[in-house]
Simulated assay, not measured.
Amino acid sequence: MSVDELHEYGLERMSDAEIRGFLAGQGLGVLALPTEGAPYVLPLSYDYDGESRLYFTYLLGSESRKATLSEQTDEASFLVFSADSMFNWESVMLTGTLRKPRPEEPTEPAEGVSRAWRPDVFQRADLSAGVEVYIFEITEQNGIRHTGLPPAFQPDAHADREQ
Protein backbone atom coordinates (compact mmCIF):
# COMPACT_ATOMS: atom_id res chain seq x y z
CA MET A 1 0.00 0.00 0.00
CA SER A 2 1.10 3.55 -0.62
CA VAL A 3 1.41 6.39 1.87
CA ASP A 4 -1.65 8.02 0.30
CA GLU A 5 -3.71 4.85 0.77
CA LEU A 6 -2.74 4.75 4.44
CA HIS A 7 -3.54 8.41 5.11
CA GLU A 8 -6.88 7.51 6.72
CA TYR A 9 -4.92 5.49 9.30
CA GLY A 10 -2.78 8.46 10.30
CA LEU A 11 0.19 8.09 7.94
CA GLU A 12 1.37 11.44 6.55
CA ARG A 13 4.00 12.72 4.15
CA MET A 14 6.35 15.26 5.70
CA SER A 15 6.88 18.67 4.07
CA ASP A 16 10.39 19.88 3.22
CA ALA A 17 10.32 22.15 6.28
CA GLU A 18 9.23 19.25 8.51
CA ILE A 19 12.01 17.08 7.09
CA ARG A 20 14.59 19.80 7.80
CA GLY A 21 13.30 20.14 11.36
CA PHE A 22 13.39 16.40 11.90
CA LEU A 23 16.95 16.07 10.56
CA ALA A 24 18.07 18.98 12.74
CA GLY A 25 16.65 17.29 15.83
CA GLN A 26 18.27 13.92 15.24
CA GLY A 27 21.93 12.92 14.96
CA LEU A 28 22.05 9.25 14.02
CA GLY A 29 21.04 7.32 10.92
CA VAL A 30 21.91 4.44 8.63
CA LEU A 31 24.08 4.88 5.53
CA ALA A 32 23.64 2.46 2.61
CA LEU A 33 26.49 2.30 0.10
CA PRO A 34 26.10 0.36 -3.14
CA THR A 35 28.20 -2.73 -3.81
CA GLU A 36 28.04 -5.45 -6.45
CA GLY A 37 26.04 -7.57 -4.02
CA ALA A 38 23.93 -6.46 -1.10
CA PRO A 39 24.38 -2.81 -0.04
CA TYR A 40 26.96 -2.08 2.64
CA VAL A 41 24.87 -0.66 5.50
CA LEU A 42 26.21 1.01 8.64
CA PRO A 43 24.99 3.27 11.42
CA LEU A 44 26.53 6.74 11.43
CA SER A 45 26.19 9.90 13.44
CA TYR A 46 25.90 13.11 11.48
CA ASP A 47 25.86 16.86 11.69
CA TYR A 48 23.36 18.77 9.55
CA ASP A 49 23.72 22.24 8.05
CA GLY A 50 19.96 22.87 8.15
CA GLU A 51 19.64 22.93 4.36
CA SER A 52 21.16 20.31 2.09
CA ARG A 53 24.26 18.77 3.66
CA LEU A 54 25.09 16.15 6.22
CA TYR A 55 28.59 15.81 7.62
CA PHE A 56 29.83 12.32 8.49
CA THR A 57 32.97 11.74 10.52
CA TYR A 58 34.54 8.44 9.53
CA LEU A 59 36.83 6.65 11.94
CA LEU A 60 39.21 4.73 9.72
CA GLY A 61 41.62 1.89 10.25
CA SER A 62 44.44 0.88 7.95
CA GLU A 63 41.82 -0.51 5.54
CA SER A 64 38.34 0.94 5.42
CA ARG A 65 35.57 -0.55 3.33
CA LYS A 66 33.28 2.42 4.01
CA ALA A 67 35.91 4.92 2.81
CA THR A 68 36.64 2.85 -0.31
CA LEU A 69 32.94 2.47 -1.16
CA SER A 70 32.26 6.15 -0.37
CA GLU A 71 34.92 7.24 -2.82
CA GLN A 72 33.70 4.85 -5.52
CA THR A 73 29.99 5.64 -5.37
CA ASP A 74 28.05 8.19 -7.37
CA GLU A 75 24.96 7.94 -5.15
CA ALA A 76 24.14 6.71 -1.65
CA SER A 77 21.12 6.54 0.66
CA PHE A 78 20.79 7.63 4.27
CA LEU A 79 17.86 6.76 6.57
CA VAL A 80 17.06 8.70 9.72
CA PHE A 81 14.21 7.50 11.91
CA SER A 82 12.67 7.82 15.31
CA ALA A 83 10.15 5.34 16.71
CA ASP A 84 8.68 6.23 20.08
CA SER A 85 5.89 3.66 19.72
CA MET A 86 4.02 1.72 17.05
CA PHE A 87 1.65 4.68 16.75
CA ASN A 88 4.23 7.48 16.88
CA TRP A 89 7.20 7.34 14.51
CA GLU A 90 8.95 9.34 11.80
CA SER A 91 11.24 8.28 8.97
CA VAL A 92 13.24 10.30 6.44
CA MET A 93 14.98 8.70 3.47
CA LEU A 94 17.67 10.76 1.78
CA THR A 95 19.43 10.16 -1.50
CA GLY A 96 22.59 12.04 -2.33
CA THR A 97 26.21 12.19 -3.29
CA LEU A 98 29.09 11.53 -0.93
CA ARG A 99 32.49 13.20 -1.12
CA LYS A 100 35.39 14.59 0.86
CA PRO A 101 35.25 18.36 1.40
CA ARG A 102 37.22 20.61 -0.91
CA PRO A 103 40.09 22.49 0.83
CA GLU A 104 38.13 25.75 1.02
CA GLU A 105 34.96 24.14 2.47
CA PRO A 106 34.13 23.83 6.15
CA THR A 107 34.23 20.28 7.51
CA GLU A 108 31.28 20.83 9.83
CA PRO A 109 28.20 23.03 10.00
CA ALA A 110 28.18 26.40 11.73
CA GLU A 111 29.31 26.41 15.34
CA GLY A 112 26.76 25.27 17.88
CA VAL A 113 24.57 23.15 15.62
CA SER A 114 26.28 19.79 16.09
CA ARG A 115 23.85 17.03 17.06
CA ALA A 116 26.04 14.09 16.10
CA TRP A 117 25.97 11.21 18.54
CA ARG A 118 29.20 9.35 19.04
CA PRO A 119 29.86 6.27 21.15
CA ASP A 120 31.91 6.96 24.26
CA VAL A 121 34.72 4.65 23.14
CA PHE A 122 35.25 6.84 20.04
CA GLN A 123 35.38 9.98 22.15
CA ARG A 124 37.90 8.52 24.63
CA ALA A 125 40.23 6.85 22.13
CA ASP A 126 43.02 8.77 20.41
CA LEU A 127 41.65 8.77 16.89
CA SER A 128 43.39 11.82 15.49
CA ALA A 129 45.23 9.86 12.78
CA GLY A 130 42.22 7.92 11.49
CA VAL A 131 39.50 10.55 11.07
CA GLU A 132 38.06 11.76 7.76
CA VAL A 133 35.06 13.97 7.11
CA TYR A 134 32.68 13.22 4.25
CA ILE A 135 29.91 15.47 2.99
CA PHE A 136 26.58 13.98 1.96
CA GLU A 137 24.87 16.38 -0.48
CA ILE A 138 21.13 15.71 -0.37
CA THR A 139 19.59 15.41 -3.84
CA GLU A 140 16.27 13.86 -2.86
CA GLN A 141 14.37 13.60 0.41
CA ASN A 142 11.17 11.85 1.44
CA GLY A 143 9.67 11.76 4.88
CA ILE A 144 6.69 9.98 6.40
CA ARG A 145 5.31 9.86 9.87
CA HIS A 146 2.55 8.40 11.94
CA THR A 147 1.60 10.46 14.95
CA GLY A 148 -1.42 9.20 16.77
CA LEU A 149 -3.76 6.30 16.99
CA PRO A 150 -5.49 4.98 13.87
CA PRO A 151 -9.21 5.83 13.64
CA ALA A 152 -10.35 2.43 14.99
CA PHE A 153 -8.40 3.10 18.21
CA GLN A 154 -9.71 6.64 18.74
CA PRO A 155 -11.94 6.97 21.83
CA ASP A 156 -14.89 8.31 19.79
CA ALA A 157 -14.66 5.48 17.21
CA HIS A 158 -16.45 3.07 19.58
CA ALA A 159 -19.26 5.56 20.16
CA ASP A 160 -19.88 5.73 16.39
CA ARG A 161 -20.18 1.93 16.20
CA GLU A 162 -22.73 1.75 19.01
CA GLN A 163 -25.17 4.14 17.30
Rank of each mutant, 00 (worst) to 15 (best):
P155I: 14
S91L: 02
F81L: 02
P101I: 03
G143K: 07
S70V: 01
G96L: 03
D156R: 15
K66W: 13
E51S: 09
L54W: 05
R145D: 01
K66H: 14
N88C: 05
R145S: 01
M1I: 02
T57L: 11
S77G: 06
A129G: 09
E132Q: 07
E162I: 13
F122R: 07
E90K: 08
G27S: 04
V113Y: 11
E71P: 00
V131F: 14
P150C: 13
T147L: 09
G61N: 04
A67Q: 12
T107S: 12
E12F: 08
A116W: 10
R145L: 01
S85W: 00
H146R: 15
G50T: 05
A67W: 08
Y9S: 14
S85Y: 00
L54F: 04
A157G: 13
F22R: 03
P155E: 15
D84G: 11
Y48Q: 09
E111Q: 13
T147W: 06
S91A: 04
D49A: 06
D49M: 06
E162L: 15
D49Y: 09
Q72S: 01
F153C: 10
S82A: 10
P151N: 10
Y134K: 10
G10Q: 04
P150Y: 05
R99L: 06
M1T: 04
R161A: 15
L98S: 00
A67H: 05
D47L: 08
Y48K: 08
L44W: 08
L149A: 15
Y40I: 05
L23P: 12
Y40F: 15
P151V: 08
A157P: 11
M14Y: 09
T107Y: 03
E5C: 00
R102V: 01
Y134P: 07
S52E: 12
G130T: 05
L23Q: 06
S52A: 12
Y40L: 13
N88D: 06
T107D: 12
A76S: 02
E51N: 11
Y58F: 14
R13P: 03
G29K: 00
T73K: 02
H158V: 15
F87D: 09
G21A: 08
V131M: 15
D120K: 15
P43R: 00
S82T: 08
A152G: 05
A17I: 14
P119M: 13
V121D: 12
L42N: 01
F122S: 07
A67Y: 02
T35S: 04
A38C: 04
W117Y: 12
E104T: 09
A116D: 07
P34E: 03
F136G: 07
G29C: 01
K66M: 15
